[in-house]
Design a protein around this nucleic acid. Sequence first.
DNA 1: AACTAAATGAAAAGTAATCTCATCCTTACC
DNA 2: GGTAAGGATGAGATTACTTTTCATTTAGTT
Lengths: 146, 146
Amino acid sequence: MMSEQGSGEQLSRRDELKGAGLKVTLPRMKILDLLEKSNQIHMSAEDVYRQLLEMGEDIGLATVYRVLTQFEGAGLVKRHHFDTGHSVFELERGDHHDHLLCIKCGRVEEFIDEMIEKHQKSIAKQRGFTITDHSLVIYGICKQCR
Amino acid sequence: MMSEQGSGEQLSRRDELKGAGLKVTLPRMKILDLLEKSNQIHMSAEDVYRQLLEMGEDIGLATVYRVLTQFEGAGLVKRHHFDTGHSVFELERGDHHDHLLCIKCGRVEEFIDEMIEKHQKSIAKQRGFTITDHSLVIYGICKQCR
DNA sequence: AACTAAATGAAAAGTAATCTCATCCTTACC
DNA sequence: GGTAAGGATGAGATTACTTTTCATTTAGTT
Ligand SMILES: [Mn+2]
Ligand SMILES: [Mn+2]
Ligand SMILES: [Zn+2]
Ligand SMILES: [Zn+2]
């Protein structure tokens, strides 16, 4: 009963990869696994690399970058360009949301505001822009850092 | 009458630098000058460097980066991290605005939506965040690229 | 004009990310 | 289950952007 959970997850992860047209390899499984299980939702390539090392997995940094980029292309993860100088990735969970980022502690909170989304669409429409994506990040000091 | 305009501008630029607590040097004047006169509002360090070269000004790339960063610190320019892999700068014009970016031709349009601004403030307040800044970029295909 | 401290330019160094290529592993097929 | 073929991997080289170092120059002051 407990043991079935593990293999069940394993199977669905396998399917996610296959569904994305990607070979099921050990590095890809481990990275997907980490993204799903880590308590950190938003991770840089370096974060992923380090955490895998700590878990005893010997996966090259080049592979981490490569796989994350492939996952992005396959729609499994979303890449963010916060003003930190490096890319941050998070598992695609079907929803869209925007971010609040604490410039003191790095904490990231998520939010969605339908009114903002609506206004964005109307602005794009007004100007003849076809939206492909958008990014809204609010920078500030979080409650615990105040 | 025509000739006074030039020295008038020169004087105000001088004051902008002094007001920012920066020495009035040739490179700083030239860079500020370019930012004010270029028909390109949003420029990378490389853009600034190249345009200065084309104008016959011999200013090092390191100086361009250094000066733009100082200008940012002094509040004379704003730095943007669009999803392009490099920083983009624009003269601070007292207003705040957000951006639409064409992923085909690189065109950048500006907009401001009070309702969006208002909603952002309320979201931050709800969560105990003190906003220091925010960035909203809508990516898409512009009218002429469709 | 001379002095002092800050600013500059060229080259070196740093950083995030990508590329190359020999080796390894998955998958498709028998 | 075994095998062949091509994609995937890892180490290190490489790139693009940016910052740093340090000798020299320049701006602001007396
Ligand atoms: Mn998120
Ligand atoms: Mn702008
Ligand atoms: Zn915080
Ligand atoms: Zn366009």
